[in-house]
Design a protein around this nucleic acid. Structure first.
Lengths: 154, 154
DNA sequence: ATTTATGCAAAGGATTTGCAGTATC
DNA sequence: GATACTGCAAATCCTTTGCATAAAT
């Protein structure tokens, strides 16, 4: 019923409620985490599977899903729901809350901090009597590069 | 690849690029649209199918999907991707661009206009050299009612 | 040795599509 | 009557699961 909601809500999570569970340090887990660390932007589980495969890693799709899910539980990845309904994962780089600006065409991603919006969200929520406001904010557009390319070909 | 993007982008759509196509006025279309008009908050296609059925309407699931899709194209519904990856539809009450504040607990939804953010989005995008900025902004929280109820039971 | 993780294949759930039949314009 | 719309069932796509096996502690 509720709409999209990224792993990170507007609220901060207690710094100890995540990570360092008793996960077994398997090759596939290491492989996926490494891929995750390498990539800057959001990718689907299927993407990770392919990416890992391209790099010579061999991890079954089901396992990729399981690992990603486990990382989601421990708060080590950000998750957003893609347009087409597939879940997109990205390493949780900063511990602080932040948002993204994605290029619709090439997938590039930039982090953007948004004090303004943080405040705005709290404000609007409060005005309607809502509490525990969390927000999902994603900006998409065409990066400078793609803007040029698109202009050139049209 | 790109992240969630609601029916309404940050851009305004030309007031005539939507609605009033040459859709045939079929019983099933009327039925679905009526349900849509009745309900205030977001519901999945499957929800609509069931709701319509409960009211005695007989519209196949596939058709519900097709109608909802067509309404999306004409800009007559707002669409957001639910947590579990299912698309949620709601009638587009206002003609202007707006966002939502949803209650995580009871699903209530409020419209919120957000000039501030509109401007902010443009600004941030431009600062990074991005063009054609679109934004997805969803606020979730606990409505006043639910806030009370939750407080009472914990 | 125990216990958790992995692979594979099958199962699920949401959404789409092909096609023949039907309703609308 | 032509054409768009519907229903049904099959087909996709993403994701989850059951189960036997392999690996980690």
């Amino acid at each position: 019923m509720a709409a999209q909601r990224p792993a990170h809500e507007g609220r901060e999570r207690s710094a100890d409620a995540r990570s360092s569970q008793e996960h077994r340090n398997t090759r596939q887990r290491r492989t996926v985490v490494e891929a995750l660390d390498t990539l800057e932007d959001f990718h689907s589980a299927q993407d990770f599977h392919r990416i890992v495969a391209d790099r010579g890693g061999r991890v079954s799709l089901a396992t990729v899903y399981r690992i990603l899910q486990s990382l989601e539980d421990t708060g080590d990845v950000d998750v957003v729901q893609g347009d087409d309904g597939q879940a997109l994962y990205r390493k949780c780089s900063a511990d602080d809350h932040h948002h993204h600006l994605l290029c619709r065409r090439c997938g590039a991603a930039e982090d953007i901090e948004a004090d303004v919006v943080e405040r705005w969200a709290e404000q609007v929520g409060a005005a309607s009597g809502y509490t525990q406001i969390a927000h999902t904010i994603e900006l998409t557009g065409l990066c400078a590069q793609c803007t040029r390319e698109v202009a050139g070909s049209s």
